[in-house]
Simulated scan of single mutants.
Amino acid sequence: MNKLYKQILVILSLALSLQGCIFVAGAAAGAAAIAVVYDHRTIEKTLQDTDISNKIADRIRKVPALRNESHIEVTVFNKVVLLSGETPNPSWKQQAEDIAKSVPDVTRVYNQITIQGPTSSLTRTSDSWITTKIKGLMLATEDLKSSSIKVLTENGVVYLMGIVTRQQADIAVDIARQVSGVQKVVKIFQYKK
């Protein structure tokens, strides 16, 4: 099965080198589809995480300043919420965190929103590409159970979430650090005992 991952990675790499930037969106979608197929959380937990994420995002969008003057991403894995992105106002950052904490079933909130204006679409495209490269490398790494890891990149900062052993976390961090464009890697793991 691992040979399949390597073959997929090679095909994606070749296609990207031949197709240029137009293929990036398709590659990102393909990596996301692969990640969903190999996600080992139960369907109930996955749906619960999606529901939590949607509720938080909907509540954030109802606040005009958070919707119009900020860029806030909501990521949920195993009821743990990561808020990332940018807002120009510290009180808006706190407001987003308060919204996340108010949603039922949330066990913890990591507020990594930076105080600055929203990033450009070019930066967001670069971030998506970094995430895609990391996911591809993780899928091709034999000793890594990448299905237990969620990857998000925001302004060059890579966030890794999931339920892993410390050894798996170290492997994932090493992979992420090797990718061009990565400024920093933040671990938001829940560790298996």
Score class of each variant (00 low, 15 high):
121 S>V: 15
51 D>H: 10
133 K>I: 05
160 L>G: 05
120 S>E: 03
106 V>W: 02
10 V>R: 11
189 F>N: 00
31 A>C: 14
26 G>A: 10
89 N>K: 14
173 V>K: 11
134 I>C: 07
60 I>E: 03
138 M>G: 08
137 L>S: 08
84 S>Q: 02
84 S>D: 07
154 E>R: 07
163 I>F: 14
151 V>N: 08
104 P>S: 15
115 I>Y: 10
54 N>W: 10
104 P>F: 09
58 D>P: 03
174 D>C: 09
169 A>F: 00
187 K>V: 00
32 A>P: 00
112 Q>K: 11
42 T>K: 12
8 I>N: 09
179 V>Y: 08
98 D>M: 10
39 D>E: 05
1 M>K: 13
100 A>P: 02
4 L>A: 14
71 H>Q: 09
185 V>S: 03
40 H>I: 06
122 L>W: 12
24 V>E: 12
102 S>W: 06
114 T>F: 04
9 L>I: 05
91 S>F: 05
82 L>Y: 02
166 R>F: 09
122 L>R: 07
133 K>M: 06
95 Q>D: 04
92 W>I: 00
81 V>T: 01
125 T>K: 03
132 T>Y: 08
51 D>A: 12
86 E>G: 02
104 P>Y: 10
166 R>Q: 14
53 S>V: 02
44 E>T: 13
159 Y>H: 11
96 A>M: 08
181 G>H: 05
69 E>A: 06
123 T>F: 03
167 Q>L: 11
144 L>S: 05
105 D>H: 07
39 D>K: 02
42 T>Y: 11
45 K>Y: 08
76 V>E: 01
20 G>N: 12
155 N>R: 06
97 E>N: 07
14 L>I: 15
58 D>M: 13
56 I>M: 09
20 G>V: 07
22 I>G: 09
88 P>N: 15
157 V>G: 00
56 I>V: 13
93 K>T: 06
43 I>Q: 12
95 Q>W: 03
67 R>C: 10
58 D>S: 15
135 K>V: 13
110 Y>S: 02
127 D>N: 06
79 K>C: 01
30 G>I: 08
184 K>M: 01
188 I>F: 05
165 T>Y: 06
142 E>D: 15
1 M>H: 15
63 V>T: 07
140 A>R: 05
73 E>I: 07
37 V>G: 12
144 L>F: 11
192 K>Q: 15
74 V>W: 08
167 Q>W: 09
54 N>R: 13
149 I>W: 06
15 A>Q: 04
90 P>G: 11
148 S>H: 14
23 F>Q: 03
42 T>S: 15
130 I>L: 09
148 S>K: 14
104 P>R: 13
132 T>A: 15
171 I>Y: 04
23 F>P: 00
171 I>R: 01
50 T>H: 09
78 N>R: 10
136 G>F: 02
95 Q>Y: 08
63 V>E: 07
138 M>Y: 08
89 N>I: 07
170 D>L: 12
111 N>I: 03
117 G>H: 13
61 R>V: 01
109 V>K: 04
